[in-house]
Amino acid sequence: MNQKTSFSSAYGWFIQRITGILLAFFLIVHINILHFGEKFFIDFNMVTERLQGSFWWGIFYIIFIPVVLFHALNGVWGLVQDYRPSSGLQKTVKAFFWTLGIVATFYGILAITTFL
């Protein structure tokens, strides 16, 4: 038992499951609102109306954004590991994914809060 242990993979695996369950809920609501609502088209006015109309829609998307980003990027990270990258490349890819995730989360939240 001499290999380096890593508990981060355990947390990554667990959070992937939690975000997967949350996504099932978020996506059902999201798709239902956008494609099965009263209107059959999406435009800027519709988005503005919805986000300005309710504080809870803002909260919904502020949670939805980091959840979907973590699930997607962690999933791609799993695929990257299948190709057995070197230790250096692993660190680079991991740092890239974390940076992308954090920047995209802040950008998404900024976009949502503009409407609130």
């Binding site: 290999q3 993979s9 355990a10 590991q81």
Partner: peptide, 15 residues
């Protein structure tokens, strides 16, 4: 404890 820590490594159960 030792075994769980070992199988949690990068090439362990989570692969």
């Amino acid at each position: 404890k030792e075994r769980i820590a070992f199988v949690t490594q990068n090439s362990g159960v989570f692969r």
